[in-house]
């Protein structure tokens, strides 16, 4: 086990009110797996991912525990967390164009990770930056190394981001919506690349996304987050093929609908995800849930084992009926 999250909560104080964004979630990530955290925007998935690297907003309050390789991350001073970011934990983000410094050549930004951590001198770091660019399958690494971010394509930029995140040889890669800004073909290439690099560099990957298509390609295990609570967590196969939680089932259906070419009426999930501070009582999904009953409105479902997955639902879908039920 490389990462262990226990009762993790994060929130903000706004106008004297405590707004809890992630409300006591627990999960483990095994070394070498691709762990996907999936959820709509506002579900708290990015906050969770950033907190693992100690990058939660400074104004946020946190509780619980995040242990990475037996180090408690939440109470660690920033000066110590800094030593882990880069050599132990790498991060890539959604928007590579604005996530790269616009006035620095790409190669220098990659080399900086090595220089700042004292892993290489300037010249050596530059050489290794070019090697890293080659490693992420950039055809002309020397040219790209001396190019500015705006001079290369979106796919190249995301590859450069990956090269930067992996330059110092981390064991954990946190990828926060890494394919969202990319078109479909580039997206597929990027996922393939991540899978290959994971193998070559013995990485553990935490992939944060709202895109079911991405999940199917790479996930070993999936955590479904809804409104700051875990809906369902378990092996990728069973979650995707036989979702037990109505929310997961709805996500799967919407992913399938969006892949069908003909324009159909989108009936996947009614309504929108609740905003921060407006989470409903009982099961947080109940206002949108086709299976909701009276107990869902009043009692928050506890997390329990259900076949091979763990979920929080009063009325989960039985394996045999899962896909058909989700459509109704």
């Amino acid at each position: 086990m490389i990462l262990s999250v226990r009762d993790f909560a994060i929130g903000f104080q706004r106008e004297g009110q405590n707004l809890v964004a992630v409300d006591g979630i627990s999960f483990d990530v095994e070394a070498g797996e691709t762990f996907v955290i999936i959820g709509e925007s506002g579900s708290g998935k990015s906050l969770t991912g950033m907190s693992i690297a100690g990058l939660q907003p400074p104004t946020a309050f946190v509780s619980g525990s995040i242990r990475f390789k037996d180090r408690e991350m939440l109470k660690r001073p920033d000066a110590e967390l800094r030593k882990l970011r880069g050599p132990e934990i790498g991060l890539i983000y959604q928007d590579p164009l604005s996530s790269l410094n616009p006035v620095w050549p790409v190669g220098d930004q990659i080399a900086e990770t090595l220089v700042a951590h004292g892993l290489a001198g300037r010249a050596e770091a530059r050489k290794r930056a070019v090697e890293m660019l080659e490693r992420v399958r950039i055809p002309d690494p020397r040219r790209v190394a001396s190019a500015y971010p705006h001079e290369i394509s979106g796919g190249m930029r995301q590859r450069a981001m990956i090269a930067m995140a992996l330059a110092a040889g981390p064991s954990l890669l946190i990828a926060d919506e890494p394919t969202t800004a990319l078109d479909v073909t580039i997206k597929a290439q990027m996922l393939e690349l991540l899978a290959e690099l994971k193998h070559e560099m013995a990485l553990t990957i935490i992939l944060i996304t709202h895109d079911m298509g991405v999940v199917a390609e790479v996930a070993d295990r999936i955590l479904v987050l809804y409104a700051g609570r875990i809906a369902e967590v378990g092996p990728a196969d069973s979650i995707m093929l036989q979702p037990s939680h109505p929310y997961t089932a709805a996500l799967m259906t919407s992913a399938m609908i969006s892949q069908t070419p003909a324009k159909q009426e989108l009936n996947a999930i009614v309504g929108g995800a609740p905003g921060l501070g407006a989470f409903p009582a009982g099961c947080r999904f109940h206002p949108r849930c086709p299976r909701a009953q009276n107990d869902c409105k009043a009692v928050e479902p506890p997390r329990r084992k259900f076949g091979v997955v763990e979920l929080a639902c009063h009325h989960p879908i039985e394996a045999a009926m899962s896909l058909t039920a989700a459509r109704s």
Partner: peptide, 10 residues
């Protein structure tokens, strides 16, 4: 966002 990236690099 590039500042977040820089922080992410440690």
């Amino acid at each position: 966002l590039y500042v977040r990236t820089a922080r992410g690099k440690g």
